[in-house]
Design a protein around this nucleic acid. Structure first.
Lengths: 365, 365
DNA sequence: AATTATTTGTGCGTATGTATC
DNA sequence: AGATACATACGCACAAATAAT
């Protein structure tokens, strides 16, 4: 009975293809009626059952829809793949503080122009929160990821998830720093150079006794410290342990940083200038020094990092090493998009920091 | 032939339900074999055709898969809905500026705890960007939306998209204000009261000639102005047109606000106190007045709105009417989640503003 | 290596039910 | 009320894949 001598396609399959072709060639639109089952059966000399099988599958695939008693119609042929929104996941340590809004803004400018959505995740610099974010990203259907690492100077307990992302082939860029155990593309500021610039500036102003306050659990803190050391070493200035204060994430309160008061007082008394991990820290130091009835920059000079909004709004305008912020956000977003589209990109980018001279540091008399 | 006397379910439908029940009750797992078509047909006294229809649909729905020549098996029953990441879309006018990071932070705290992703969109207070964001949200698979309206005091050209969202049944909350043409749930600050509080405070300090700088294309500007008027009227203080300056989005530059210089000078000279639309404006006014070699609050008192970070960091600590920021973000996120989960929620919430007294306003002598 | 039984896949014919116009 | 269209249901025949004999 079956005349498919030479491994012909099944009849219903051929019919499906014919119907799809017709829809596309005739340019039939959503809601247009197609032939009835009986018409098709007669036309193709097949049974109505066969027609129903073809139409049934097309209905399931979204090409057609049927209305009982009326007929069969062309369905919404939304090209699901191409119309699907592309999404980039962005995970940072903080959201509201500081320079992050600007960085995210820069990313948004690029991503939204390129038709991407931006999914935000925030870790508050805690590993458990980081884990939740990563799990979300993995479960979501996203095209690329931008990560600002959490406690980047410490061993990371979420490397399994990062590896999973890499294995899945999802492009991922880091900013500010990268976990040493991973070999991922990144866009960072040259923090060692930034530390060097800040310190060199103070040395050139004549300061000989320079203290520093650095963050111990972020890799940026380590690099800035490294640049600080380098500049001192160049001029043969010895580095006293008591001139360095380290703090970590948990020391940051709403209004202050928990620093060992005695150590801080020693620092203040023995140094004519202090390098502060960032503008936020610098401002807290400004307040602390002010409450000790001393004055900046007359009694103590400060240089900080980031050039955030805080730096210019404050009472004492801060001399600070600028973070590119928006520019960095844009750059990393562009790099990621290029990577997604298969274009060649620089995998490791270091951006140049720049010293912005304002009022918080002056010559040592 | 058909014995469905009392509108029974179709046989294939009953069979489908039976198969699903069996899978669930027997705890059959992926890969377990079920009965053959013929077995089922005999068992239920139906034709094989009917069995095939039932199994065919279940296959399409992912319950089963078939292997030619071997049999029919239980498929991967990934509970697609529950395993899928839930997402909330958030659209604001700005990202980096000002109080928005705090608001978004508040939302993130609630949403991430409830297992939601947060998709960000930013309009830069322009309608065309707003349109793109809304289109993205509509095309994405989103469970709920939070909107800060763009140019909320002007007629909105994107109402068609908003209506589309409402028709789709996607829960949507507004913050700060809502388009008058839409009847949507919202969480706002009582801006009229905020305007009133600020003005009353100045009046109580003895000021009689009070000016105001307001934003004309955001509804918040209108409401704050309204409260301003109300307080003046209560004390029978007449309102001179020349004491009011209006600006709009396009007047905001990186470092300044374009204000008519002559009008501004008139304002400064004829008023002993000024109500500023927000802290950002206030700081620009502070700088302008400083450059005119005048002093705040000695020569002119300022009261502004929002109590942003700027208010406390600046040289002159601003007296300002506080915006709840994080709290508002949390509240609207909680409301939205409750709505999504079908719980009852307050549809229109007005939060109470609170005057924070600092140093930018003093008694009129 | 060939056969056979089982199972799903393709295809036809027929009849009746039910929604729409 | 009748024509048309899709929906449900039964029956049969043969093809093709699989597994066991």
């Amino acid at each position: 009975m079956d005349k498919r001598c030479e491994r012909q396609k099944p009849k219903y399959q051929a019919l499906k293809e014919y119907i799809i072709e017709t829809i596309e060639q005739e340019g039939l639109k959503t809601g247009d009626k197609i032939w009835s089952e009986n018409e098709l059966a007669k036309k193709f000399m097949v049974s109505r059952h066969t027609v129903r099988q073809a139409i049934g599958e097309l209905t399931n695939e979204g090409w057609l829809y049927k209305v009982h008693g009326k007929g069969t119609y062309v369905g919404e042929r939304i090209d699901q793949k191409s119309s699907k929104i592309k999404t980039i996941g962005v995970m940072t340590t903080y959201l509201d503080d500081y320079i992050f809004p600007s960085i995210i803004l820069g990313m948004d400018q690029v991503l939204s122009k390129a038709g991407y959505n931006l999914v935000l995740g925030c870790t508050y610099n805690h590993h458990d929160k980081e884990r939740v974010c990563l799990e979300n990203f993995i479960r979501s259907d996203i095209q690329g990821i931008i990560i600002e690492p959490t406690k980047s100077a410490l061993p990371n307990p979420n490397l399994d998830l990062y590896r999973q992302i890499i294995d899945k082939g999802i492009p991922m860029f880091f900013i500010h720093g990268c976990y040493q155990e991973l070999d991922c593309p990144y866009v960072v500021v040259d923090d060692t150079k930034a530390g060097y610039l800040a310190t060199r500036y103070l040395i050139d102003l004549g300061h000989k006794s320079i203290g520093g306050i650095f963050k111990i659990d972020d890799i940026q803190g380590h690099y800035r410290f490294k640049g600080f050391q380098k500049a001192l070493a160049e001029d043969g200035i010895s580095l006293k342990d008591s001139n360095i204060l380290w703090f970590d994430t948990d020391d940051i309160g709403e209004e202050f940083i928990k620093l060992d008061h005695k150590k801080f007082e020693v620092l203040i008394k023995s140094c004519s200038a202090i390098i502060c991990y960032n503008d936020q820290v610098a401002l807290k130091i400004v307040n602390a020094i002010k409450s000790m009835e001393m004055n900046i920059p007359d009694d103590i000079s400060l240089v900080s990092f980031d050039d955030s909004q805080l730096a210019v709004v404050s009472e004492v305008k801060l001399t600070t090493v600028a973070h590119p912020q928006k520019k960095l956000g844009r750059l990393v977003a562009e790099s990621l998009i290029n990577k997604i589209d298969g274009r060649e990109v620089k995998d490791k980018v270091k951006m140049e920091p720049e010293l912005i001279v304002r009022d918080s540091a002056k010559e040592y008399e």
